[in-house]
Design a protein around this nucleic acid. Sequence first.
DNA 1: AACCTTGCAACAGTATACAGTTTGGTAAAG
DNA 2: CTTTACCAAACTGTATACTGTTGCAAGGTT
Lengths: 219, 219
Amino acid sequence: MELPVPSTPRSDQAVALLRRRIIDGEYEPGTLLAETAVARDLGVSRVPVREALFALERDGLVDFSETGRAYVKDLSPRDFEELYTFRLSLEPIGARLAAPALSKDSSRLDGNIKATSKAPTVLELTNLDLDFHEIILEASGNGRLLKQWHSLRSQLELWLGRLNRLKQLHTPGMSEATVGGHKELVKAFKTKSPDECERLMSQHILGWHQWLPTMEVPE
Amino acid sequence: MELPVPSTPRSDQAVALLRRRIIDGEYEPGTLLAETAVARDLGVSRVPVREALFALERDGLVDFSETGRAYVKDLSPRDFEELYTFRLSLEPIGARLAAPALSKDSSRLDGNIKATSKAPTVLELTNLDLDFHEIILEASGNGRLLKQWHSLRSQLELWLGRLNRLKQLHTPGMSEATVGGHKELVKAFKTKSPDECERLMSQHILGWHQWLPTMEVPE
DNA sequence: AACCTTGCAACAGTATACAGTTTGGTAAAG
DNA sequence: CTTTACCAAACTGTATACTGTTGCAAGGTT
């Protein structure tokens, strides 16, 4: 292509495009992501694709075989459990660290809750839910926790997207439970100790976990 | 070069070499890692160097500026605090998960303790200490926790290496405290509940943290 | 002396070419 | 019918060339 200067680097475009196709299920789990084919598909050369594949591996959306081939991540129910364990390691501490800041200003959380209660689809509901948790980790002021969260979130979105395509994701009362839990958290940030916020976040994550239907092992 | 087939990929070699030079302080914190120069230095082309730089960014040993230039990570005391917060999020949960497996077989931990008590230098002491913690995370069976640990460890090694070069890292009684704490942990794995192991690990990390001298902000 | 220009050198982004490896299928042998 | 040997296509690893950008310093202007 003779585009003079892409405003955003091609490799970033490649990451964004690939991420979307993987999360949206356009590339099915387990699909081989051959550099040449993807490059042709995205309209760039192999080099940016290569970098995108490595970046997405970091986010847990791509797996590399021992021989260096890249495949769309095929999350197993066991992976999903790992992800929730990982959430339980990151988020309660994040909540504790974020409590001081959020007790003073919870406006972003409030806005998010308002949007969540009006979410028209399950997928938008879950995305707003993830936004809520992301706001808290941002407020924790710990860049490393936040970085891990981004990777975690990618994989959760991948899982939720698949689940939504394969099964009925919505369960009666899910929206109310989400909003209720979040309101409780905001209240805790304002009135309770950081330690209490940490405990409440653990409970909240465990509770939400239960709302999700399990996905059978495809075998 | 006309080497027929490098047994290990050049990019892996580049990662290993660069990591060593950074941790050993051969490349000073803040140094520009220009692809061409590094490539010449390591005897490979720019492509493997590029990949190595991205990989090391993931490990927190390299920083990228907004204009895409790579620099040797310059850890601040604040970064160090973040690292320990991150440890507190990963390791106690790792210990809880690992407890069942380790209660049955603690031979690797026992061997490590034996080696630790004989460590001739402070740097070897700290490395064996990190090995001890790594064994536990491996036993947790959670690949995601372990992956994060590797990145965490890289940065701790970077910090400890610098500290050791700049200050007297050794403090009287440090070795005994380390070995003592580790023995206590092994005992807990064998006789106490996973929850108790989790608590003990938190304490152990906080305690060890106090042994390290603080590093002034260069400023 | 301080402040803009201008130009050059160094650098990253990207494409492409080539070498070597893996893979899957097909034909030959048991 | 099964197994082995082999070959061609596909794929990754790596080098290199090219382009545009950035940073910096020299020289000129107020």
